[in-house]
């Protein structure tokens, strides 16, 4: 009898544990939102030349409970009006074969509940990796929480010199050191 009792209680514990883990996995799935078509564009402005590149295939994840955000982009997905610039961007500056992706991972600092619909101004502390160089950055942004979707928007500046992207003196008048970066993503529940 004793043995059976033990077996039953073991089974019960196992069942509860399984349910608990399932529900954890489930609830975490509901707090995860993802986008695979986020837009990232950047703009370099000098008196001589304006250069802009744009990608529409960046991927983004947000965890609403932990308020974590991750962003990833294939460097060679940036499109330029001038394809020669695009080739130079990948070959000479980003070195996309050596450093194929740029990424950001961070945490939202504000004490807000992202499960409640609304528009939130946020600051995100995290690590920005471009050209193999990871920097601690605080990046401002806007999060719009709606029923079934989340909109992320952010503008910030990336300095080429901070990420050891060398601009030869010959073209230094055409490429700005400070690039304006714009990010826009519509995230949907991740299943």
């Amino acid at each position: 009898m004793k043995i059976t009792n033990q077996a039953i209680s073991m089974k019960l514990i196992l069942t509860i544990a399984t349910i608990a883990i399932f529900s954890v996995a489930n609830s975490s799935a509901q707090t995860l939102y993802k986008a695979t078509n986020a837009t990232v564009s950047f703009f370099s402005k000098t008196p001589i030349e304006d250069i802009d590149g744009k990608s529409e295939t960046a991927t983004t994840l947000i965890n609403l409970e932990k308020k974590d955000i991750a962003f990833m982009i294939q460097n060679n997905s940036f499109q330029f009006p001038n394809k020669l610039m695009q080739e130079h961007f990948n070959e000479k500056y980003m070195e996309s074969e050596k450093y194929p992706i740029s990424s950001f991972r961070g945490n939202i600092q504000e004490n807000i509940d992202l499960k409640v619909a609304g528009v939130y101004q946020v600051t995100v502390n995290g690590k920005l990796t471009i050209h193999g160089i990871t920097l601690d950055r605080t990046i401002p942004g806007t999060i719009t929480v709606k029923e079934g979707s989340i909109l992320l928007e952010s503008n910030f500046i990336v300095k080429n010199s901070d990420h050891k992207i060398e601009i030869p003196s010959l073209v230094a008048t055409k490429i700005a050191d400070e690039l304006n970066v714009k990010v826009k993503a519509t995230l949907l529940p991740k299943n």
């Binding site: 983004t60 991750a70 990833m72 294939q74 060679n76 074969e97 990424s103």
Partner: peptide, 18 residues
């Protein structure tokens, strides 16, 4: 780790340039 998750889910092939 959300970033590791993004990286592992990436299935896009990159064209070889230049």
């Amino acid at each position: 780790d959300l970033l590791d998750m993004l990286k592992s889910e990436n299935t896009v092939s990159s064209p070889v340039l230049a």
